[in-house]
């Protein structure tokens, strides 16, 4: 699984107050702007370590960061299982561990449904690459997961009949909105 590709390359990894010196001169300019800038960098560095696998910012306990990372991934797995219950059904007991491995280095794709789809694609890629510990799907699981992804990304076979075509178009619109 190519996990590093989706980690943000430009994510800040500096310590918790990297802008303290440079922001000083502008502090008087406008109220909270300097404090906001320092806080923004500190929070982005921590969050990036937690959800994108970038290095733990200086001063944080790495074991605690790992625990928090795991807790966030666990929460995301639960949300994914709720919006896409087919995934835990197809993957069985393997769903949660494989989702958590995925989530720890792949930030949320924006929205729970897109997240579920990104995970399913990554899971299939992992299953295709030999020697990957996550590549242990059965033939049936691969088929079902591939079908699940295809149903949500198209192109679907053109349904025959006007009513069926309308229903398919409505479904497609609903999935875009969702």
């Amino acid at each position: 699984m190519n996990v590093s590709a989706s980690a943000p390359a430009g994510a800040p990894t500096a310590n918790t107050a990297p802008a303290a010196g440079s922001a000083h001169s502008s502090a008087a300019a406008s109220g909270t702007d300097a404090a906001r800038q320092r806080l923004a960098l500190a929070q982005a560095a921590l969050l990036s370590a937690l959800v994108a696998g970038t290095p733990v910012p200086q001063g944080f306990d790495p074991a605690r960061v790992r625990l928090q990372t795991r807790a966030l991934a666990d929460k995301r797995a639960s949300v994914t299982a709720k919006v896409a219950p087919e995934l835990p059904r197809i993957l069985g007991d393997g769903f949660r561990p494989s989702f958590i491995r995925y989530a720890q280095v792949n930030p949320s794709a924006g929205g729970a449904r897109r997240d579920a789809l990104s995970f399913a694609r990554a899971r299939l890629r992992a299953a295709e690459s030999s020697g990957d510990p996550a590549g242990d799907l059965t033939r049936q699981q691969r088929c079902e997961l591939t079908a699940w992804v295809r149903e949500r990304t198209g192109p679907a076979p053109r349904p025959r009949g006007r009513l069926r075509r309308l229903a398919a178009a409505a479904r497609a619109r609903a999935s875009v909105l969702g």
């Binding site: 943000p8 430009g10 994510a11 800040p12 918790t16 404090a35 906001r36 800038q37 320092r38 806080l39 923004a40 960098l41 500190a42 929070q43 982005a44 921590l46 969050l47 990036s48 937690l50 959800v51 994108a52 928090q68 807790a71 966030l72 929460k75 995301r76 949300v79 930030p107 949320s108 924006g110």
Partner: peptide, 25 residues
Amino acid sequence: AGGEMTGSPLLEAGHLLPVPRTRDS
């Protein structure tokens, strides 16, 4: 966190994270 103020991708935690208890914060 992230986005415009930091020049890095905007990231969503998906859950609540603590703020530093500093004067800035």
